[in-house]
């Protein structure tokens, strides 16, 4: 994060003035953000699990439906999903969501029906 020129300063003759560097303010650097919803939050938190193939989310008027498609339902994955779901209730206060796990082994490549039925899709990076 580097120093920033103070914004809001007005120069009357731009050609004749070298813009000074002020170090009093350091602005946020990457000023682009995607709104994090329960589905995206879960997708980012679960990204390190190779067995997770796909996280989808469908927004309903009064709740969010989140679906996780994974190769298996190992105890480790289930515990992690449960833990993340509890975090989500804290992060998205008051919001109801229905989080479901579907086990579809990668040998069965066709998850197109699930993909089509979700509004937002978060693939593993």
């Amino acid at each position: 994060m580097g120093p920033s020129v103070r914004a809001g300063t007005v120069f009357f003759d731009r050609g004749a003035i070298e813009y000074p560097e002020y170090e009093q303010v350091q602005q946020p650097q990457d000023l682009e953000a995607r709104w994090q919803t329960p589905g995206l939050y879960l997708a980012e938190r679960i990204a390190s699990y190779p067995s997770v193939r796909f996280v989808g989310e469908k927004m309903q008027p009064d709740y969010n439906q989140v679906i996780v498609v994974a190769d298996d339902d190992s105890e480790v994955l289930l515990k992690q999903l449960f833990s993340i779901e509890r975090e989500m209730y804290g992060v998205f206060s008051g919001l109801r969501f229905d989080c479901r796990l579907r086990v579809i082994p990668s040998s069965n490549a066709d998850i197109s029906a699930i993909v089509r039925s979700t509004l937002e899709r978060y693939r593993r990076a």
């Binding site: 303010v25 919803t37 992060v91 206060s93 919001l95």
Partner: peptide, 15 residues
């Protein structure tokens, strides 16, 4: 009063 979405992770330093 439902938090539908958030973003965070930006830092601002004011000296």
């Amino acid at each position: 009063e439902r938090a539908l979405a958030i973003f965070k992770g930006f830092k601002l330093v004011v000296r």
